[in-house]
């Protein structure tokens, strides 16, 4: 049977979470179809058809789909469902907002936030904020799944030449209108997707001091993250929050600065390959999971690290 992946995008580019989800789909079927619901997405359809793993790109292009209102997009997905054994979406706020409506419309139970695929019907997912791992099996007519992007590699974006199919827009009566989106613009890599993440906690003491972290992040071409404590203290916006109530990240290098390591923060970053903790409190629980710990005043340590990195760069060049 075929697998349908619902694309997360901004009408111009696919989000990397879509590429992770396609990799997950590869474990289920060779016949992967990518569904793009959006507005003015001809270019997006063209660029998406080169994804090697995708056999068909299905696009529904309509101005009402500009802002991803789930009441409008979910019936279009449900309408395609009978052709598929599995329907996948990333377990980002996009997928979480959308796919349960399809569950209601198809009367099947969705499986959320899958981190592993054992077989066509057996999946692995974290529960209790990752403090337990559950193996679940289902024999429903169709498997609705959201996929945790950081648990699957990104698929190749080139090398393919998929067919493109246009499907008609199905209108639904919707009482919700989009007003605005407040997105923080940054030249740094996307938090969920960066190779290096530099995160700050309450130890930073105020929002001005976060500038130190930005400097370090820029040296490492890293994304900036934050603990919930730092977000709640108003040092930085919630979209930077890493943890159970924020984003899940799994970069190659995670540098936790002035973060004590509350369970809820660890839930969001403990899958990182290498973890560095910098904290003046030797008792901080973050040191229990860090590969490299430095017990030091961060206001001294960060400028020193930047200096050392500059030195390294000089030696190399």
């Amino acid at each position: 049977m075929s697998v349908l992946v619902v694309a997360e995008h901004d009408n111009k580019n696919l989000k990397s979470s879509t590429l992770n989800t396609i990799s997950a789909a590869e474990k289920l079927s060779e016949d992967i179809h990518l569904l793009i619901l959006g507005n003015k997405i001809e270019d997006l359809a063209k660029s998406s058809k080169s994804i090697q793993l995708v056999k068909k790109v299905i696009i529904c292009d309509h101005e009402k789909l500009e802002n991803q209102i789930p009441e409008l997009s979910s019936p279009i997905i449900s309408n395609l469902a009978e052709n598929y054994s599995h329907i996948l979406a990333p377990s980002s706020t996009f997928g979480k907002n959308l796919l349960p409506r399809v569950s209601a419309q198809l009367d099947v139970t969705q499986i959320s936030d899958i981190i592993g695929i054992e077989s066509q019907d057996t999946f692995i997912r974290p529960i209790y904020a990752g403090n337990a791992i559950s193996y679940v099996q289902t024999n429903q007519k169709i498997n609705l799944m959201t996929i945790r992007p950081t648990s699957f590699e990104k698929c190749e974006e080139a090398g393919g030449d998929a067919a493109v199919e246009n499907i008609p827009f199905i209108d639904s009566e919707v009482k919700t209108t989009f007003v605005s989106r407040e997105v923080s613009k940054s030249d740094r890599p996307e938090l969920g997707n960066a190779r290096v993440v530099v995160s700050g906690g309450r130890g930073l003491e105020n929002s001005d001091n976060f500038k130190l972290l930005y400097d370090l992040a820029d040296k490492l071409n890293a994304a900036v993250g934050a603990s919930r404590a730092a977000v709640d203290s108003g040092y930085i916006g919630n979209e930077y929050q890493v943890g159970q109530t924020g984003k899940m990240v799994a970069p190659e290098l995670y540098i936790a600065v002035g973060i004590s390591g509350a369970i809820q923060h660890l839930a969001g970053m403990k899958e990182s390959k290498v973890i560095v903790a910098i904290n003046k409190d030797l008792e901080a629980p973050i040191f229990n999971i860090a590969d490299y710990g430095l017990s030091s005043d961060l206001f001294q340590a960060i400028p020193e690290i930047i200096k050392e990195l500059d030195l390294l760069n000089q030696i190399e060049s």
């Binding site: 706020t93 919700t176 209108t177 007003v179 989106r181 997105v183 979209e239």
Partner: peptide
């Protein structure tokens, strides 16, 4: 709404 990119404002 708290979304991954920031905040989305809706009227309903």
């Amino acid at each position: 709404r708290e979304i991954d990119e920031g905040i989305e404002n809706l009227e309903t």
